[in-house]
Amino acid sequence: MHEYSVVQSLMQRVEAEALAHKARAVDRITVGLGELSGVDPELLLSAFELFRQMVPLCRNAQLQIREIPAAWRCRVCDTEISKGEVLRCKICQKPAQLACGDEILLDRIELEVP
C-alpha cells in the first residue's frame, strides 16, 4: 500500500504550493497516473480521503485522476507494439521502449485565493 506514501508526498507538495500562493483553500488536485505506474487509482483515492482530513487547506479538495494508458513503441521506427505482445519491433528487431504509461504526476491544482 505505497499509495499512502504517494499521497503523503502529494499533500506536502500541494500544501507548499497553496501556502506560496497565500491560498485560503485547495479546491481541486489533478494527477496523472500511468497504467504501469504501480499506483492504483482507487487506492490513491481512498488514501487521499484519509489524508485530506489532516491538511486543513485540503479538507474540501477534490482529487481528479487522469489515467494514462501504457504505450510501447519501437525506438527506431516508432511502430507501436500492442499490449500483450513480445516487446520487440517485428520490423527492426529492436527492443521496444515505453512511450508513456509510467507517470505519477501532479498535473495542476486549483486554489481559492482571496
Partner: peptide, 18 residues
C-alpha cells in the same frame, strides 16, 4: 467570493524521493 486560481505543476509526485 475568492477567485479560483489554477496552478500548472506537471511534476513527478515522488520528485523529492527522486
Amino acid at each position: 467570493d475568492p477567485g479560483l486560481v489554477p496552478v500548472e505543476i506537471h511534476e513527478r509526485i515522488l520528485a523529492s524521493n527522486d
